[in-house]
Structure formats: C-alpha cells, structure tokens
Nucleic acid binder design. Structure first.
Length: 485
RNA sequence: GGCUCGUUGGUGAAGUGGCUUAACACAUUGCCCUCUCAAGGCAACAUUCACGGGUUCGAACCCCGUACGAGUCACCA
C-alpha cells in the first residue's frame, strides 16, 4: 500500500478565496488521514500574464495561519521538485511526454492554424450544431509530418480521442460517470510555443510527483474523461478522483474573487479566527457522522470521510460563521483571549483600565474581533446624557426613580474603599435590600449613568469595577445633575 | 445548443425502501433567566423532500420523464 499523496496546486493570481481554501483543506485532510500521507504544494504559474506580485506569499501565509502545513513545496523542498511549474518547464518534460504520447498513439501533431478552426466553429454554431473539430492532420503521413516540422512550420500536439465507444471514470463523490467519446474534442496538449496546456501539465506533474488522490472542484468533471484517456495511453495508474461541489455566494453564483466576496484575508481582517474559518468551511459540502460541529484540525482529520462530501453546491453563510467564531472566542481560556484582543482593547480604550476585566465582559459577547471597538467606545468618550434611557418598563424605572437610586448609590459608593467586583456587588445589593427596590431599579440606572448607552457589554457592577471609584462617581454625579434639571 | 452534474425548510444539512408524525446546527420568533445587551435554557418553525408518472404492501430514498439551476465545450488556469 503506497502512502497517500495529495497536492494543492493554486495559481498565484491574487488572494486566496474560500472555495480554494476549502479544496486545500480537503486535500490536507485526505492526506493526513494516512499517518504517512503527504500534503504537497505546487505553484502553477504558467500563465505569466495573470501573475500577481506577492500572491505566492499570500498562499504560504494562508496555509500557515490555517495550520495546513505542507510536507513538500517550493519553500520546504522535497524529493519531487521543482515545485513551481515554470521551473519544471525548463527541463522540457512536458514536450518530452507529449512526444512520447504520440509514439504511444495517444496524440498527434497538428499544423492547422487558428483561423481555419475558428471558421469551422462559427459555421457549426451558426447551424446550431455542436462543434467537434475533425482534425485533418490526423491523417498525415509520418514523412509529411517530419518534413513540415523540419520546414519550421508551427504545430501543436493534440490529444487523440477514439471516434467511437465511451469512457468511464470513477469519482469518489460523484460515482461512475460515462461519456460518449464522440462528444469529446481533441484538445491541445502542447501549445505552439512549446508550453503545455494546464490540463496536460497537470497530468504530467501529478504522475511524476506520485500524486495518489486528486481533489479539485467539480468544474473539472467534464474534462476528466480526457484525463483518463491520457493516463490509459501512457499505461499509468489513474489517481483517485475527489471532485468537490462548489461554494456558492448565493443560489446562482459561485464565490468569486471579485466584489470582495469572502476571501480568507477579508474574513481575517473582519475579525474572524483562522481556526473558526477552517472549521466552518469544512462543513460546507461535507457533513460528519455525528452532530458535532466544533472541530480542531486534528479532530477534523479523524472525522473526515470523503464518502460524506456532498454533490450539490453549498451557499456560504456568514451568519453561521459568525456564530461559530463566537463559539471559538467564548471557549478560549481568558488569558489567551486577552492576548488575542488586547490590541483591539488598546485601540479602543486609551484610559488606564484593567484590560483583563474588560476582556472578561467582552468574551461572552463579541462574535468577531471587529465588534470590539464599538462596544468599548463609552470608556474614553462618555456619550451625551439622554434622559430617555432612564425609562425602562421592564426594569420598572423612570427618571424619577433613577434619580433617587443614583443619589443613594452615590452616597454609599463615596464611602467605599474596596472597589473589587465582589465588594461592589455586595455593597450595591445591600443597598437594594435596604431601599426595598428591585435590582433593576438601582443597577440599571447606574449602568446607564456610567455609559449613557442603551446597550453595553457588562452591567453596572462590572463596568463600575473597571471604571473604579473616581470615574464612577464622576459619571454618577454628572447624571444626577442632568436628571435634576 | 451538445455533453456532464445537481435539486430535502431562509441557510448548512441528516436521511441510502418500513425505526421519519423528515435529525442536528445557523438564522428567525416567543418564553425563561437576568443590572442593559449578549451568552445560556426551553419552545415554535418542511403534513413534506423541484414537479409529473411508474415500481412496491410500503418511496425523500429505486426507475422514467419534465422543469429549473450549475459546470464544461480556449494554443486560460
């Protein structure tokens, strides 16, 4: 039994989008299911025109942040290099294999020019017929071919497709798929400039790099029969195919790089954790056997099963990701959480407050890191007084009651020395019982007085503790003055 | 247009002929808890699995057809 080897083969044309990342994830999981499995990174940069500066670094960085560590690749090396396609090309292997395929009867030279073919195509489309190019070059004699090549005529190498019969391939998620050979066109394998086309390069690379499992989007389903014909002509083992359904933006559109659709980078910038993103996208198009939804990467490796990948497109739901991100945040150990959010707290709160205490009130509420700034805005910028906030039916308070409560609170707090949360809590609760009022009739007005906001993370006691004595009293006093007007 | 694939609630989905009066989760709504908001707890939310036929004692699950959607048909990847 050979070890499983999978490859993630992105082209460096921009940032990493979610569908791409999910493919990488599945490839990683398939490989790591095998204790000796290898997950490899290959950069497909043959389209020089579309290359984007720095895109390769984004790929490295994304994989790293997500914990999808590759065992072989341009940056880490390995026995099957080079791992960058443009470098592989230098050795001339694609041309070599293309010629070998001709010798094996799987391909042929073609000297037709593009205009000829395009004309035929247009005639056919005008008639409403489907167009399969019937290449006259297939009938050229070996002598003539040799002659024309010697003359320096440009040529391409095209695949040979049997005119009759059917081709069947097996996919782990879609099952057996059979197509009529007559519907397959003889596509170009080697371009006139000597470069391989994508599909051909893929086959050669996957084979020479010993890839056992090919995980890719289902847009390749229709070209896979042609892959098989080539593997068969070479007499090579056909890899296990795992075609994944698309990740959709809505019911009609796939997630795309345009329109700022959820790229990994965007999501991270919006305050989502890489672990949560990975966890969420694992569940887009795949479902575990149990009801468990929160998984570490290690747990995913255990639970993952190709057989449970679905066949229909899945719409990316930011609401569920947000929920899941919140779960991750809430489940963190508080000191780790503080470390994670401290930058945000520093950014939002310049005053000298206890960041750990702030982190505690945030942790149960923020679903994404970016919500934090707004949640904490009342610390530094004490909002305008608004008397309407003091009326709350459920809390059974109104400005009048609030005024009384605040006055009583002020007097008691003025004498309080221990401003720990426990002490504050006991003091205020004692006041509640001596005043014989409801909790909300004292605490709600205090919270409002301290924040002048309708909603805040934390209640009166927590916020009072963070604000400490001086600032708390100052804000209560200010509110009393305003209420007395 | 040809070929290929797909279609369970607003979303992710479970379900592979009787255990389904269709899990679970997000979202939504209501209630509880509660010093606000969250979080947490509880409940409601598909008489029905795109539609129409058929097979069967019995179908979301098998077969056929229709509709709709997606992918693909480049010297792009």
């Amino acid at each position: 039994m050979t070890n499983i080897r999978t490859r993630f083969a992105p082209s460096p044309t921009g940032y990493m989008h979610i569908g791409n990342l999910r493919t990488a994830l599945y490839e990683y999981l398939v490989a790591k299911k095998d204790p000796n499995g290898v997950f490899m990174l290959r950069i497909e940069d043959t389209d020089q025109g579309r290359l984007v500066e720095g895109a390769t670094d984004i790929i490295y960085e994304t994989l790293k942040q997500c914990g999808l560590k590759h065992d072989e690749g341009p940056d880490v090396g390995g026995d099957y290099g080079p791992y960058v396609q443009s470098e592989r090309m230098k050795s001339g292997i694609y041309k070599e294999y293309a010629e070998k395929l001709i010798a094996l009867g799987g391909a042929h030279y073609c000297f037709c020019n593009e205009e000829q073919i395009e004309q035929q195509r247009q005639i056919a489309t005008a008639r409403g017929e489907s167009f399969i190019y019937d290449d006259p070059c297939k009938n050229l004699s070996p002598e003539e071919i040799a002659q024309r090549i010697a003359n320096g005529e440009p040529y391409v190498i095209r695949q040979n497709i049997p005119s009759e019969g059917t081709t069947t391939f097996h996919d782990e998620v879609y099952g057996d798929i059979t197509v009529e050979n007559s519907t397959l066109d003889e596509s170009i394998l080697l371009k006139s400039d000597g470069f391989p086309t994508y599909n051909f390069a893929n086959i050669i690379d996957d084979h020479t790099m010993n890839i056992t499992h090919v995980v890719r989007g289902n847009e390749y389903l229709s070209s896979t029969p042609k892959y098989n014909l080539i593997y068969e002509a070479f007499g090579w083992d056909i890899p296990t195919y795992i075609h994944c359904p698309p990740v959709m933006k809505d019911e009609h559109h796939k997630l795309s790089k345009r329109n700022g659709d959820a790229s990994f980078q965007d999501l991270v910038a919006k305050g989502y954790l890489p672990e949560a993103i990975i966890n969420y996208i694992a569940l887009l198009g795949w479902s575990p056997e149990t009801d468990q939804e929160i998984y570490t990467l290690q747990e995913l490796i255990q639970a993952f099963n190709v057989k449970r990948i679905g066949t229909s497109g899945a719409i990316f739901d930011i609401d569920k990701l947000t929920w899941m991100n919140g779960m991750y945040l809430r489940n963190m150990e508080i000191h780790d959480y503080l470390k994670l959010v401290d930058e945000h707290i520093k950014n939002a709160v310049k005053g000298n407050y206890d960041h750990l205490a702030i982190a505690k009130i945030l942790q149960q509420r923020a679903n994404t890191l970016n919500e934090i700034d707004e949640m904490l805005d009342f610390f530094d910028n004490y909002p305008e007084f608004d008397i309407n906030l003091y009326t709350n039916k459920k809390m059974k308070t109104n400005p009048e009651i609030a005024l009384n409560s605040l006055k009583a609170a002020y007097d008691i707090l003025n004498d309080l020395e221990d401003w720990s949360e426990e002490s504050l809590h006991d003091t205020l609760m004692n006041l509640v019982s001596s005043l014989q009022i409801k909790n909300g009739q004292l605490l709600y007005p205090i919270r409002v007085a301290l924040t002048n906001k309708q909603f805040t993370p934390g209640g009166a006691i927590e916020i009072g503790h963070i604000l400490q004595k001086e600032e708390t009293l100052r804000r209560i006093k200010a509110s009393i003055t305003n209420l007395e007007k």
